[in-house]
Design a binder for these strands. Structure first.
Ligand SMILES: NC(=O)c1ccc[n+]([C@@H]2O[C@H](COP(=O)([O-])OP(=O)(O)OC[C@H]3O[C@@H](n4cnc5c(N)ncnc54)[C@H](O)[C@@H]3O)[C@@H](O)[C@H]2O)c1
Ligand SMILES: NC(=O)c1ccc[n+]([C@@H]2O[C@H](COP(=O)([O-])OP(=O)(O)OC[C@H]3O[C@@H](n4cnc5c(N)ncnc54)[C@H](O)[C@@H]3O)[C@@H](O)[C@H]2O)c1
Lengths: 233, 233
DNA sequence: TAGTAATTGTTAATTTAATAACAGTGCAAA
DNA sequence: TTTGCACTGTTATTAAATTAACAATTACTA
């Protein structure tokens, strides 16, 4: 089995972490650091050093004893694994608050991953550009996607429209969808789908905050209880 | 062990899914549906019906055979588990593109989770409101957070500032942080931290699109190979 | 009324992910 | 030189999450 095949079987979580490692490594590179230890990466990512070393083992990268990992080499290797050589083009459907914010955010962040087009139905937006990215009429979606060979679509339309937009993206030949609306969509086999709802994340944080609050109260009550019991002796 | 204690030990993934189930159930309720089967929920969430039933078992909810789960009851039970009775207040630090988009998005979505304040350093933004939420000067952060009993902070400042803001939030007594900048932050024990970088998600989608592309090529090559081999017979 | 199909609830098995354990190595200081 | 320390790399173990298996129940149908 060659290297490329090995990469195919990397755990999903490892893929996510590789992207995060690279993000951190790029910052370190900017700070003129040339080597980094597993425990340094781990600290940044809030994980264990073993986890880092294990991930790097899985991608077949070896560091130098007592010097750690060569940042530049590691960045390049991660790029070999997760980036596509020819680059991948992305479209954003729904040039509202979130869509425009995303364009600004992504612009120029990664060479191999570029936003090539935006789509909307609002005549005021069609024909304009946001950060250099043209906004096309949704009606021309299939054409633009096929002509420009766009492979990923990000959905940021009102949630009532997400189902229809996902369908249209699939029909246009898109291979991956990232849906930021709170309404889950459906895609056929062969199209990779990722959905993310910020409210879920916020509710998760809220849940653990609530738990921590209750725990603190419990401990206080227990302490008081013990105190009372002790004073009875 | 009482019910509340059971909930504390729910798997993290189950907590996430409960939030997602509720989101889906609320939509169903709007459509005047009163019962729902595990496989219906599963379809929406792209998971298996068993997973749904297992989660519901963990929270101790029973459906009716052949009728499924009572949507209203289930929504209420999920609220009991993940919502905090008194409600939790949230602050957004950094009223830029993303911060403002988030305020618009969250507003009025969940009663028990309300954005109470925004913070910024830009004098043009301080004193204004976004969707009814006042934007305060960052200098008054501790005071505002303590006075209003805000427990969660969402960080949407430029990434160069995220470390400083996280520190300040913690000092102000915040209990949970949701960091949307690509620069990971550090928090002490007792503060719950969640970080999310949209680029990681996009890169993950790109990776699996790339894999699918290569697989398709491989299959084609293999087919051709077989074809050639066959024609040799 | 007996049989069948559809559904829940629960335990068991499997898979995936994370952690622990530890051998190996090179450098530095004694 | 030798000893110990601070790392890496890998295998073994444990834990978490998912999936499978299946009994139990109900409603419908023949
Ligand atoms: N704003 C946020 O921070 C945020 C966060 C998470 C999720 N979301 C979700 O993202 C989506 C967009 O949010 P937003 O705040 O940008 O809303 P928005 O109203 O500002 O933007 C929606 C855009 O989609 C366009 N649109 C409407 N129907 C369309 C169609 N059929 N095809 C193409 N374009 C269409 C509109 O013209 C508008 O430009 C919503 O589903 C929202 O729930 C937003
Ligand atoms: N725009 C997006 O879609 C997007 C997506 C993911 C992540 N992000 C991240 O979110 C952050 C904000 O992105 P944005 O597009 O909203 O940027 P932005 O420049 O529009 O907004 C940043 C805001 O933070 C304020 N600010 C600067 N320093 C501050 C400080 N010390 N305290 C308080 N406020 C301060 C600025 O005045 C500005 O209002 C960035 O870190 C970006 O990487 C943005």
């Amino acid at each position: 089995m060659n290297a490329r095949d090995t990469f195919k079987q990397l755990p999903h979580k490892t893929i996510e972490r590789l992207s995060q490692y690279r993000r951190a490594l790029l910052i370190c590179l900017d700070n003129n650091k040339d080597h980094i230890f597993s425990h340094e990466i781990a600290k940044i990512q809030h994980i264990t050093p073993v986890q880092v070393r294990r991930d790097l083992m899985l991608i077949g990268y070896s560091g130098t004893l007592r010097k750690g990992y060569n940042i530049k080499e590691l960045i390049d290797l991660i790029a070999d694994i997760i980036d596509s050589e020819e680059g991948i083009k992305v479209a954003i459907v729904g040039m509202g608050n979130l869509g425009r914010a995303l364009i600004n955010y992504f612009s120029g962040k990664r060479h191999k991953l570029s936003i090539a087009a935006g789509f909307d139905v609002n005549p005021d937006k069609i024909g304009k550009t946001v950060n250099g990215i043209p906004c096309y009429d949704c009606k021309t979606m299939s054409q633009v996607i096929q002509e420009q060979n766009i492979e990923i679509g990000i959905i940021t339309v009102p949630d009532t429209q997400s189902t229809a937009i996902a369908k249209k993206l699939v029909e246009s030949g898109i291979k991956g969808i990232l849906n930021y609306t709170p309404k889950p969509v459906e895609v056929p086999d062969g199209v990779y789908l990722e959905e993310y709802d910020m409210i879920t994340t916020l509710e998760k944080v809220a849940f653990y905050v609530k738990m921590e609050n209750e725990r603190t109260v419990d401990v206080a009550v227990k302490r008081q209880g013990q105190g009372t019991a002790a004073s009875n002796f």
